[in-house]
Design a protein around this nucleic acid. Sequence first.
DNA 1: TTGAAAGCGATACCAC
DNA 2: GTGGTATCGCTTTCAA
Lengths: 341, 341
Amino acid sequence: MKTIVDVANAANVSVATVSKVFNGYQDIADETREKILHIAKDMDYFPNHFASQLVNGKEEGICVILSMFGYQVSKDEYLVGILSGIHSEAEKHGLRVIISTEKAILRDGKNYVQFCGSNKFMGFIIHGLNMSDPEIPHLVESEVPCVFIDITIEGKKKVSVTTDNEKAAAEMTGLLAGLGHRHIGFVAGSVDSWVTPERVKGYCRAMGELGLNPCIIQSDFTYPVSYDTIQEHILKHPETTALFCASDVIASAALAVCADLGYAVPKDISVAGYDDLSFTSYLRPQLSSVAQNFFGLGAAALSTLISIYQEQDPGPIHYVPYEIKMRQSVAKNTRQNQESL
Amino acid sequence: MKTIVDVANAANVSVATVSKVFNGYQDIADETREKILHIAKDMDYFPNHFASQLVNGKEEGICVILSMFGYQVSKDEYLVGILSGIHSEAEKHGLRVIISTEKAILRDGKNYVQFCGSNKFMGFIIHGLNMSDPEIPHLVESEVPCVFIDITIEGKKKVSVTTDNEKAAAEMTGLLAGLGHRHIGFVAGSVDSWVTPERVKGYCRAMGELGLNPCIIQSDFTYPVSYDTIQEHILKHPETTALFCASDVIASAALAVCADLGYAVPKDISVAGYDDLSFTSYLRPQLSSVAQNFFGLGAAALSTLISIYQEQDPGPIHYVPYEIKMRQSVAKNTRQNQESL
DNA sequence: TTGAAAGCGATACCAC
DNA sequence: GTGGTATCGCTTTCAA
């Protein structure tokens, strides 16, 4: 690989001059600049990033920690949305983004704080964090800027970015009730997920305010478990006229259960999902859902990280707007089992 | 941030000793090593990555170029599969991976070759390349190791990694024909995608070998366009008993068209997709599909890149095995319009 | 407008 | 076992 010395020699100037050209200094003769630029391009020279970083020590990278990355299982579309949002925003600021897993960071016996310092990162964006990781407390106590997606963690220079799950769940519940539904079941996702209690809370609050009895159907985020759980529930509670599911995958299972049990959606049962992944509109009936803005979540995570890094205080939590999409799978309640009225 | 000097001072040793401890040298007294390690951890010191890189110049990073990243539109689940595979493999080799877009690389007037050299990357993994990019020819002519996913490009240290689209399409076509289908339509994706002609070729070859008339329905990879195109075709060609779609999204549209037109799937029409994204099993009927191994594609891309980098010659193209998943949406042809027999 | 030279932080060879 | 120091490639101040 060519170095600045090679370019300087070829151009018959000093390395200082070459350096100045690449760093936008204006006190260089146009002729000299052109010559240097031309020669550099010709030999595919560009300043060694490590050497530059070493001397002018400005951090210009951020690290995204994706716990579940590197495993066969992780193939969820929303991750692409988040990453895409992060990149889009990073591009605007000229920041480079490194995606890593805990395992990769922790190798060689180092911890997150050391890793950040060693690489001069502005901070971390963390998603899907495994809270049992013993190194996390140390990170949280440090002053390393961190943005957590979909989980709240308190600490200095620590901010959470998420959808307002409680509000969204409450709103969807209200909409279902507004369509005349009284027996609205909520199919909850995994208990160990941070978003689960939030969504349950919103649902329960809304039901309470409406004077309705909440009914939680505890499932997880997988299709097969959801299918079985929902089927069992419907058989036991035929009075159910609406199912609000904590994810679109769960909602797909609900749709399948209804079809297999001979219930028409939305005529007999209304079904709503959460996330609004792209396949929801491929389903028949098309799924109503709480649309999370994953791209926005990623973009917000990055811009929040920048502001923490710049010593601003954006507050402990930042909500990214959601949108409720009503499609074919939800309709007015037409069944007459509204004994609670 | 603390430097090696701070640690050396605190431990009352020289910087050389500290350096040796962090580089696994064995000629250090256990006692000294422990002391240094302890002090370092205590002040969250870890060798500055840029300084280390500068002196021992071993490249240990690879760059993934994702053209369509950073845009709202890209939210396809398969990207996560590919990235996940790349990361999984990178972790094994202790390589760091940088994900970037052309735009981010090309800023400051540099090109791909310069970017690679400046960052001491082992090479690039490129997906979704925009071939009209004027800088690409220069990269291809260079000796920079590159692995292209789903596109073939010839050049020194240039290898393609892909699913054998032609073979897979031919195989699926053969399976459909084996079930008695004679009028098998192929719904093709965007013409400007590299995989499209490959899949068309496989389909046509199989049809030809079976003595059947190929019938290409030209669409793109979007749902709405596919819906309209397929609907039009079915109305014009009611003899069609099977639709082989170039993607699962297209196949979802086909399923919807059939439902809306009153055709039962698979009784009246069989439908097959391509990709096997996770939502295919949420559909009713569950979609038969050519399952691409996206994780494997990513992992293979990285290991191939390593071998090119090491001056091995893995050949111009590497195929990652696919799998054909037969589910509910495909069945034996029961219609009697087999006039071509 | 250009260049000499002092570092940036870490590594590794060579003495001791 | 430990330490002195040249060196990696580049940036930037200061002089010329």
